[in-house]
Amino acid sequence: MNSQTIKTWAWVHKWSSIVCTVFMLLLCLTGLPLIFHHEMGHLLGTEVEAPKMAPGTPHASLDKVLSVARAQHPDRVVQYASKDEDDDNLWFVTMTPTPAPTDDFRSVAIDARTAQVLAQPRFNEGFMFVMLRLHVDLFAGLPGKLFLGFMGLLLLVAIVSGVVLYAPFMRKLDFGTVRRNRRTRLKWLDLHNLLGGVTLVWLFVVGATGMINTWADLAIKYWQYDQLSSLMVPYQGQPTVPLAERGSVQRSLEAAQARVPDTKLSFIAFPGTAYSSPHHTTFFLKGNEPFTSKLLQPVLVDAKTSEITAAPKLPWYLMALLVSQPLHFGDYGGMPMQIIWALLDIATIIVLGSGLYLWLGKGRIAREPKEEAAEARALAGADGTP
């Protein structure tokens, strides 16, 4: 690799790193508690648990559960309903002023067996809510998500350019060498390169999946336009189904599960919401295996007649989105994977912090001895690298 090519790669690496590093630091810091979101919920006392009952206690009708939820907030409509991931005896019902997407929502936790209200947790406030919003969209909605997606793209550029630069810059040193007897700046540069190499694959995977996740809203809207619009032709000109005219949701759920056997419910999107149509109750079902439990199968059921309209297969881009979301937070392998994710996250924080230190302190190179300064300039051609 000639000197001009190295300079070009160094420029790309330096500026892609500098632009994204502060935001990547923010994402790593906010992502750390999110890795342990269930454990943090128990620690903060926000987790809801269903009371112990005899195994096999029958569940109440979903229609009764929804009726109880509506009675808590009669001025609101049910947007979504879902079973707790770890407890089949617990329903969470989300209620909003209108079916349209909004941050103004109320959640009602209901015992699936007795249809009694257990709690009304506030998921839109508190420490974990702030961490999630900062991590997902910086409290800026879709523009914030797309901005963070662009920062993720710059991170991938910085990683690729860093790999290209590492070999020629470190050709005289063994991998992982940390020159402890040299000046502080060179020791930090060696540590930066060492941890960067250790976290390379993980950071690329997390950065890529995070970038994909920022496209979720646009991907869903495109899916609705591209594949669901044809299913809405028979309903053209009809208003959203009023609550009084809707059929049994329990019967609709049973029909959906019969259409796709060996699955369990992930969540229900009611008519007019972002994940459904104005005329359907859409049931999102998932498999029972570790991998298939992350994939969803939508079943659209006519809200009036409780008859199935369609069960379309999700396109590849939504499948990629569903796979990337749990991988991003280490949700595939239980606690061992969460711990590994957390350790790599901490290592990445050190990489990003040392990159900032190297860039902010580059002016001190000129005051170092000539030989060391020349070496430092060569090795620090990618100051600020993540």
Score class of each variant (00 low, 15 high):
3 S>D: 06
5 T>V: 06
6 I>R: 15
9 W>E: 01
11 W>S: 06
13 H>R: 00
22 V>N: 02
25 L>S: 03
26 L>I: 14
28 C>L: 15
33 P>Y: 02
34 L>V: 08
37 H>I: 08
38 H>P: 05
40 M>S: 07
41 G>F: 03
42 H>G: 03
42 H>M: 06
43 L>T: 06
44 L>T: 04
44 L>Q: 13
47 E>T: 15
53 M>D: 05
55 P>Q: 06
55 P>E: 06
60 A>W: 07
63 D>E: 06
64 K>Q: 15
72 Q>R: 14
75 D>Q: 13
76 R>G: 08
80 Y>S: 05
87 D>I: 01
94 T>F: 11
97 P>G: 05
98 T>F: 01
98 T>L: 01
102 T>H: 00
109 A>Y: 09
111 D>I: 11
114 T>M: 10
114 T>H: 09
118 L>E: 14
118 L>F: 11
118 L>I: 10
119 A>W: 00
123 F>P: 00
129 F>Q: 04
131 M>S: 07
132 L>P: 04
138 L>S: 05
140 A>T: 00
141 G>S: 08
141 G>K: 06
146 L>V: 15
148 L>V: 10
152 G>P: 11
154 L>S: 10
158 A>M: 08
161 S>P: 05
162 G>D: 02
164 V>S: 00
167 A>S: 04
168 P>H: 02
169 F>C: 02
170 M>T: 07
171 R>V: 01
174 D>V: 00
178 V>C: 06
183 R>M: 10
186 L>H: 09
189 L>M: 14
191 L>T: 08
192 H>W: 11
192 H>M: 10
195 L>Q: 03
200 L>W: 13
202 W>C: 10
203 L>G: 14
203 L>N: 14
204 F>T: 15
204 F>C: 11
205 V>C: 13
205 V>S: 11
206 V>Y: 11
208 A>I: 12
214 T>D: 08
215 W>N: 00
223 W>Q: 11
225 Y>A: 15
228 L>G: 04
231 L>S: 05
231 L>C: 05
232 M>Q: 12
233 V>G: 04
234 P>L: 03
235 Y>Q: 04
235 Y>E: 01
236 Q>A: 08
237 G>Y: 05
240 T>R: 15
243 L>F: 14
250 Q>P: 00
253 L>C: 02
254 E>L: 03
257 Q>K: 10
261 P>N: 04
263 T>F: 01
263 T>R: 13
274 A>P: 03
275 Y>E: 14
283 F>G: 05
286 K>F: 05
288 N>G: 09
290 P>C: 03
291 F>H: 03
291 F>I: 15
292 T>H: 09
295 L>D: 11
298 P>R: 00
301 V>W: 07
303 A>W: 07
303 A>M: 06
304 K>W: 05
312 P>H: 09
314 L>F: 08
316 W>N: 11
316 W>P: 02
317 Y>T: 01
318 L>C: 07
324 S>C: 14
325 Q>T: 12
326 P>E: 07
327 L>R: 04
327 L>F: 12
329 F>W: 10
330 G>W: 07
332 Y>K: 01
333 G>R: 03
334 G>Y: 00
337 M>C: 03
339 I>R: 03
341 W>F: 12
341 W>K: 03
348 T>V: 14
350 I>M: 14
366 A>W: 10
366 A>R: 14
368 E>W: 13
370 K>V: 04
370 K>C: 05
377 R>S: 04
383 D>F: 09
386 P>S: 12
